[in-house]
Design a protein around this nucleic acid. Structure first.
Lengths: 201, 201
DNA sequence: TAACTTATGTCATACGATGACAGATGACAA
DNA sequence: TTGTCATCTGTCATCGTATGACATAAGTTA
């Protein structure tokens, strides 16, 4: 890894951290891209070269999660019930969270606090999630040998994502990742217990 | 109803229709507020006095639907299973759709086509829906005598909304409201059949 | 008709976002 | 080390969304 690449990574993280801190200090809306860039001492134009938009900062984690889910889903056996595969994909995301570096963990907790203080962001994250939902639905539908327009495939994915969201948006103030993970596992358990066996086949 | 009020309503609908037509002609992103205002012959500033944002045009139906759901939910008996109440709320929205004027029906069909050609809008509609989801969750949690942070209450609402979305986003090209309503009823039926009796109590 | 309320247009301004171009900086081979 | 090349960066220009301030025009009411 050359100097150039390291420098880029450093700038990227600096922008991310600066943005996160400013968001928590003065609120998401009140923070401008100019301010974020100012802290890191780069031009606003450069900010947009690292992040496609101001929004993509609080959404960087979700993008990461979607990737994990897609990969996991592809690796699951084809004859597994669809919702079961989805829960595995969700748990893979949880697993990633637990295995992240202390820096990433801190960022994640900050992010969570940000979402809590700014409910509008939750909406925006779901908005981004819709595109991912479509891709996941295609995978599930193909596996089930169904039309991409198949309602049940849609429903399986939509409910799984909704479950994840409910688990993530716990209004408790978590001081560590463990609390969030536990909460997610709880929610997942409730979901699994609420569904009739074989509904997703 | 005075002249002034009638004039306002007329302008509002003119802006709505102009926007919808332009969106379908040249796409949502390619259409500017200036153009929309131009068709109706008002200043762009005036547009923003009728609609809080460009986005709120394709979202006007959702806002309407949320209102219906909240009202319905409040009128349901307190001892009814929560998810059942939610399905009633959803069906109330469907019922409203069937009872609308021909003009509104046309607008709704245009809107649906718009959502189909612009998946990003689906995301944005869900984003708006998140706020409504929070309010509905509060109602459900209170009825269930649970904490507002109760996971099951969250899950009940989230799954119901997800079901609605799956029904709405049918990739079929509906020429009339009936086709959409049928599709929604189908999705709702699948959902109801997938859940264990009593899961929502 | 006069006095009022309210809607509208015309500024000005802020912020997010993108394209174009030139200069700075790191990468790499001779 | 030096020269060449690729790439990153800042500056500038521009567009579109959105909001506040203020004067004017329109409808309302006495």
């Amino acid at each position: 890894m050359g100097l150039r690449e390291r420098k880029k990574e450093k700038t990227r993280l600096a922008l991310l951290d600066a943005a996160l801190d400013l968001f928590l200090e003065q609120g998401y809306d009140a923070t401008t891209v100019e301010q974020i860039a100012g802290v890191v001492d780069v031009s606003p134009r450069t900010f947009f070269r690292y992040f496609s938009s101001k929004e993509s900062i609080p959404l960087w984690f979700h993008e990461q999660g979607e990737e994990t889910m897609t990969e996991t889903l592809d690796s699951r056996p084809a004859d597994e019930p669809a919702f079961t595969s989805m829960t595995h994909a969700l748990r893979a995301v949880i697993h990633d969270m637990q295995g992240s570096t202390p820096e990433d963990t801190e960022r994640f907790l900050k992010l969570r606090k940000l979402f809590e203080t700014n409910p509008a962001l939750v909406g925006k994250s779901v908005a981004r999630g819709t595109a991912a939902e479509l891709r996941l639905t295609e995978i599930i539908a193909r596996r089930r040998g169904a039309d991409p327009a198949d309602q049940l495939s849609h429903l399986i994915v939509a409910w799984a994502m909704a479950t994840m969201r409910v688990g993530f948006e716990c209004p408790y103030e978590p001081t560590n990742i463990r609390a969030i993970v536990e909460r997610m596992e709880q929610t997942l358990a409730i979901a699994e217990n609420s569904l009739k066996p074989g509904w997703d086949t």
